[in-house]
Design a protein around this nucleic acid. Structure first.
Lengths: 180, 180
DNA sequence: CTCGAAACGGACTAGTCCGTCCGGTTTCGA
DNA sequence: TCGAAACCGGACGGACTAGTCCGTTTCGAG
């Protein structure tokens, strides 16, 4: 891993890009051959870089999780607990909507190193929002996150459902506050 | 198709039962071999009854849709529009949670004859509930039903999110009235 | 420019799955 | 009881996928 030969580095970049696209579009069933074709390399090259298809998938999902970890930290940096949670929740929902592999490979993610950081930050976000009264308390953090994939289609509906009963911060039809 | 021979009828019944179980458990990727094995027949027998795996899947999904149509009519029979909608919504969510194939094969369902009846009854349920003020109006019937699979995990949350803003018919934590 | 090592890519293996086919068996009705 | 029709199930073919191997090409240091 010291320094790849120039052509090898170029192919690796193309490969990761193509794999990300294919997995996002077709889900876990994207074939290695198709990824290799889209990357413009032979499929033997894929297996030299990644010993198995799963390893390639893990690399792609790892990148995606990195983005989510950043979004979670961004949410924690927000002073308002409710706003911080909502921002992360929307970002995560969008990521799931964008990437089929994230949805289908959710279990495989659990063994990834980034998963721990994401879980920890997510739990803090949830508990902080619950303590602030911006999030219903009858769901664990784990359960809240199980709703993320569902929220990829209609985040407003899910977020309304996640607010504590009796609290209705959306007086108008559905328009959310106009932002900062 | 007038009248099957006794053994053929018996095998067909077993076959549909096994297929339903396999598809529900493993989703669309349940193999024909496994279905045949579970039904106690050779897999050649499967293909004599159904020209293709998809045809078998369609038969199984058709049955499931029949159940949903019945649930929708049940909901329409309920005098209270909100209650009727909610009952159907919960039933549909439960069916999706129970049957992986319903979730994964949702697109294939659209060409099934039962789909039309279900769609029509569902739209009436939704519009009636919206008119009665029990359901938010910023979603089409189509969109409401896209939330059904999501609701298989936490129907209470989704239903809360589906209520019109400003209306909070659940004063307590989350307990829904257990019905009549 | 030379040359060794690293990287490449396609042929090949092994396994799975859908769908076909045919020889043997069971059922039905006369 | 018996013959024909219907049915059964496993062997088989073809397509596809993950992963291996090795002859060939490309890089880059000297």
């Amino acid at each position: 891993m010291t320094q790849l030969r120039s052509d090898a580095q170029r192919n690796l970049d193309r490969l990761l890009g193509a794999a990300c696209e294919c997995f996002a579009e077709r889900g876990l069933h994207a074939s290695v051959d198709e990824i290799a074709r889209r990357a413009g390399v032979g499929h033997g090259t894929v297996f030299r870089r990644f010993p198995t298809k799963d390893a390639l998938l893990a690399a792609v999902l790892g990148r995606e999780l990195d983005g989510l970890v950043a979004a979670a930290e961004d949410g924690l940096a927000e002073p308002d607990a409710g706003v911080g949670f909502e921002r992360f929740f929307r970002a995560a929902a969008a990521a799931y909507g964008r990437n089929r592999a994230l949805l289908e490979g959710i279990e495989r993610c659990r063994t990834l190193p980034q998963a721990r950081a994401l879980k920890e930050a997510g739990e803090r976000l949830v508990r902080r929002a619950q303590k602030a009264g911006a999030l219903r308390r009858d769901l664990s953090a784990q359960e809240v996150f199980e709703l993320v994939p569902a929220a990829s289609r209609f985040p407003d509906v899910i977020l309304d459902g996640l607010r504590p009963p009796g609290r209705s911060p959306r007086p108008g039809p559905v328009r959310s506050g106009h932002g900062s």
